[in-house]
């Protein structure tokens, strides 16, 4: 009788400790979940910045085409007809103005990391050489968030072109 009583002694504490441990584990899981949600929210907010900056880069590319179309078409000809890509690359993806490092114009009080911008593709898609042409521009933006994760965003833009040949 005494033995059985002794066995029962402290059983509530054991139950309580087990229950408290379960609660703590649940609490920790909840905290982790909240932190992950927070990270995702920040990533969504920051991706919007990348989107606008990449769009801005596409504007620069289209303006370059608008200002120097003859040079661009010469580069395109050298690349597509004669397989010499270096001139087109110099005009487009390797051109200095199409790479911006550590841009800090978009920022927030919770993250002011610089953003890198780059024109990734800038070419012409042609269906019929002299009629249906589109200018295709692709810009990428990336930055490293406060948790050390690299966030990327790509913006693609297609502009319809009217290229007319004139009688000599």
């Amino acid at each position: 009788m005494i033995k059985s009583r002794n066995l029962k002694k402290g059983s509530a504490i054991a139950f309580c400790l087990t229950f408290a441990t379960v609660l703590l584990v649940m609490g920790m899981a909840f905290a982790r979940l909240t932190m992950n949600n927070k990270k995702q929210t920040v990533q969504i907010d920051e991706r919007i910045k990348l989107d606008y900056l990449a769009q801005g880069m596409t504007e620069l590319a289209i303006l370059k085409f608008q200002l120097y179309p003859a040079d661009f078409y010469a580069c395109i000809e050298a690349s597509s007809k004669y397989k010499k890509d270096e001139y087109l690359e110099k005009f487009t993806v390797r051109s200095e103005e199409f790479t911006i490092r550590n841009d800090k114009n978009s920022y927030s009080s919770f993250n002011d990391t610089g953003i890198n911008l780059q024109i990734a593709s800038f070419t012409i898609f042609t269906e019929n050489k002299w009629k249906d042409e589109v200018l295709y521009v692709e810009a990428t933006a990336n930055y490293t968030d406060q948790y050390g994760k690299i966030i990327n965003k790509t913006v693609k833009r297609v502009v319809n072109l009217e290229r007319k040949s004139h009688e000599p």
């Binding site: 907010d45 900056l53 769009q55 801005g56 504007e59 289209i62 978009s106 009080s109 919770f110």
Partner: peptide, 15 residues
């Protein structure tokens, strides 16, 4: 008491 801010920036070309 501290003020927070969020900025979006982009470029617009005269096309």
């Amino acid at each position: 008491s501290n003020e927070k801010e969020y900025t979006l920036s982009t470029l617009k070309a005269d096309l």
